[in-house]
Design a binder for these strands. Sequence first.
DNA 1: CGGTGCTTTGATGCAATTCAACTGCCGTGG
DNA 2: CCACGGCAGTTGAATTGCATCAAAGCACCG
Lengths: 221, 221
Amino acid sequence: MRTIFDENSKSRARARVRQLLSPPSTAQSIDLMCAPTLYTRNEQIFGEGEPADCFYKIETGCIRAYHTLDNGRRQLVAFYLAGDFFGLDARDRHTISTEATTTSKVRVIMRKALMSSGNGDMAMIRHLLDLTAVELRRTQNHNLLLLKGAQDRVVDFLHEMAEREHSLGEFDLYMTRRDIADYLSLTVETVSRTLSHLETEAAISLPTPWRVVLHYPSALN
Amino acid sequence: MRTIFDENSKSRARARVRQLLSPPSTAQSIDLMCAPTLYTRNEQIFGEGEPADCFYKIETGCIRAYHTLDNGRRQLVAFYLAGDFFGLDARDRHTISTEATTTSKVRVIMRKALMSSGNGDMAMIRHLLDLTAVELRRTQNHNLLLLKGAQDRVVDFLHEMAEREHSLGEFDLYMTRRDIADYLSLTVETVSRTLSHLETEAAISLPTPWRVVLHYPSALN
DNA sequence: CGGTGCTTTGATGCAATTCAACTGCCGTGG
DNA sequence: CCACGGCAGTTGAATTGCATCAAAGCACCG
């Protein structure tokens, strides 16, 4: 039931972090705290239940974060794109699993370096608080999305992606239909059907299955 | 469309806070930062879009937090019970509205007193970070709840309430069926039907509509 | 060329909503 | 005192939207 992935890159990342931080870091910017690590498609960053030593900033690519439910099904709670932070929800252990949906470059940041009362710096903690609040609002928005009908969910999703990729009108999907379905809590079939329906309505075009063109970017029904 | 409420108590609370904090507070404990204010049934604490000067700790009673959707319908995102903090999700302005579902005692805490770099104290900020992370996980759990079938949602809700009122087996509902329905994203009818069904199955008893007895507190189907 | 992974399309069933009617409770006013 | 109206909860029958099951289309690759 577990996704196949290469444990090596995780070890690599940890080792690199330790090396960089072993003399207590005085870095002013989170961006500079660690060299980026590369993850390939379906490779796991961290799993549910693992100790939460670090959090993460994604440079390029796309990460999916999900819960595994009792019934074995998978519920995606977020896609993280270039510039996003993730892994903040955890206190002691991670409550979600994360995997790359496509080749992705990720920076790993140690928690302890920031949180220890000794060298913990005020501005940094408040930055963390900001990021966590952003994550909270993102989760609340996702909640609201799940209340709507199937078509609205898909449309909202397309708008969200268009906005987050800074490309109103035309953009790429870095994830499969299954990922989208699990994010929107629909079936693949319903997602596919809805996209087809939007295309016949001339609301969007799908030159390829992973390329999307919004014909009315502002208000799409 | 706006709930009828008495603006007075809000002004009262604000004034009291200013009075207590006008010489910059040096209180060590959040609990002591302000005398409690009393809110009556359906009275609003704060509304969506209002500036977020403060956050809140509830002493007794029950508060509902909700979004108002485009279609005019209401989605509850949380019930807050004795001991809970709320209003943390906001950065600049509140993204949700909050009202008392029953007579409730609430402490109001100024944000600025804690957040200003001058007198902001590290332990306090980190406490805030903790509380926000708790809120984030609560929201994630609520997400998962909305994915299940109607019966599971109701059962989970009853368990949540039983646990949060520290009374396994028997407890009071401080909110109406409509509040429960909007929290679980079901209709009143479905909630009512499900409760009736659980009662005929001898899984619960409802001596009165607002009193609940769980017959198998541990595992309820 | 056959295999594999992902997407698309079609036919059927079910769970929750919707609409509508009925009950019990409580406060108000004749 | 009882009659009335409003409100919250309950119950029943019809509708609908999405899931489910099943199968075919399509690209990529050995």
